[in-house]
Structure formats: structure tokens, C-alpha cells
Design a binder for these strands. Sequence first.
DNA 1: ATATTTTTTGCAAAAGTGTCGCAATTTGTA
DNA 2: TACAAATTGCGACACTTTTGCAAAAAATAT
Lengths: 139, 139
Amino acid sequence: MSSQDIFEKSLRTHKLSLTQPRQAVFDALQHHKSLTMSELVKSCENFDRASVYRTAELFEKLGIVVRIPTGWKYRLELGEAFLEHHHHATCSTCGASIALPEDPALEKRLRELAARRDFTLTTHQIELTGTCAGCATNS
Amino acid sequence: MSSQDIFEKSLRTHKLSLTQPRQAVFDALQHHKSLTMSELVKSCENFDRASVYRTAELFEKLGIVVRIPTGWKYRLELGEAFLEHHHHATCSTCGASIALPEDPALEKRLRELAARRDFTLTTHQIELTGTCAGCATNS
DNA sequence: ATATTTTTTGCAAAAGTGTCGCAATTTGTA
DNA sequence: TACAAATTGCGACACTTTTGCAAAAAATAT
């Protein structure tokens, strides 16, 4: 089942129309792995800003996209149905973004932590900040 | 040493003045444990919006406050010199921000994970998204 | 295929957010 | 108390995000 199929099925399941703006937003997110809101609006310049915003909000509710907090802005990425769940470490010296190995134990621990506050976890984000190997040796 | 003392000392160390707007921002953050920017501006209504923004930015640089990403907004809290290091769960239904209990094992695990990529961790953010107990029962 | 119904869009307007330069005020210091 | 330096408030501006509503597009039934 292709990403496109998963996308279309997700809309159909919720009785939502597959429209041009929605397809454009989905395509933009597939081509660029992650986008800020203004980048997304620019990528969909044939369509109205309001539609892009409404679509982004809708997709987030459906789990098609997730918001990744990066400092004080955020970026949009396709959700777990399309991309492997993962986290990143960002080097504050060179700006490199390092993908982290999966850690089921960590994920489990987070679920337990949430459960202690009677919180039902739908998703989570982890953002590590520090210095990568290269920058650590060169300083 | 009281929070107020730590606050004043931090300003003095950096040769910065203890002004009314700065005190007001600090007070607001002490009284409400966590605030969005617009809430903070409202809490400091005797002072100008620009001053509150400038103060927030300054305090963040000094480590007096930290930005907590919560979905599409962010909240401000006093930093680690004033508050224990902790993380949050954000309810996607009502927007509530729930402080999570400390978990040294989780923190340790993150350091190990970073180490596996030869990454030296300086700080990190964790954000859980889901449904709080209240919203789960009312739906 | 076409008509009908429902959903979604584009538009235009408005509210909200964050930033900047600069004169006036406040603060720290002598 | 007075002076120099730091900071504020004001006003303006550039984005960003949201909203109501008539028009258009999409889904559904004929």
C-alpha cells in the first residue's frame, strides 16, 4: 500500500473529500521531508493560505502530519503511518541533525510516565540539544 | 537564597538593571507556574508589550526562563535555577499543560541514547501529546 | 452522464504575534 | 542630587493565523 493509498484511505475513512488543496499539501510534505508553515504555504501557492492552514490543522487531527517543535517555531512532517517514528539530536555548534536509534524501552517509559497522570498518549516528541562528535573533537 | 535573590544576582552578574517591567515579568512567572506569551503580556498590562517581549527574550538568554514547546504555541517557565527540571504533557483537546513527575531513569536513558551517537547532551525537551483524564471521560 | 446534496474552497477582513527605531524615562553610580 | 548609561513606551510595520460566507468543487444518487 503506497503512501498515497494510505492518505486517500485516511480521508475516506473519515468521510472527507480528496480535494486539490489537500493533495497539494500532502505532496509538498512528501517531497520536502519537513516544512514550516510559511514554506508549506509557499509550496501550495496555487491555493489559498486559509485552505492550507485548514488542511494542516485537519491533517494533524487525522494523524497524517505531526508538528515538530524546533526551538520556538515548529515544522510539519508526515506522521507515523508514512514515516518511521524517530527522534533527533541537534548539534548546537554545526546545526547537524542526527537521527537517533530506536529505543522501545524509552518509549515504554514515556507511556508509563503519562499513565501516572492518567494521560492517554497519542504521540510525543523528544528534542536533544548538544554537541556532535565532530564538533566536540574540533574544539 | 530566595528565588528573588537568585533573580537579582543573575541580573547584577550581567550588569543589567532591575527594572519594573523585569520584576513584573519575573513575578508573573512565579505566580503562574507557566504562561503563554499572550498571557504573560496580559499579566504585565501596566507595561508595554514590546518590553515584555524584550524581557522574555533576555531572560531566556540568561537562563531565567525556558521555552516549553506545546504543539503550536509555547509556554514560558522559570528555569532550572528556580524550578526542578521536568517535562510536560499537552492535552490536544483542552490545551492543558500537565507537569510530569521527574524520572531519573528516563534522563539516564536519554544520555545513553545520545552517547551511542557520540553526542554530548547539554539539554533536552520532551513533549507528550494526548488526552488528559478530564477530556477522556467527557467524550 | 446529469442533477442534487454536501463539503470545501477562495476571498476579504480582522485579530493576533513579534520586531524595530527613537525620544523620553528610569536606573545605577558617583 | 546630578550625570551617564541602560531601558522603556510609543507608534508603526510586517507577518501569521483565524473567520464568515457566497461560490465552486466533490461525492452521491438518479
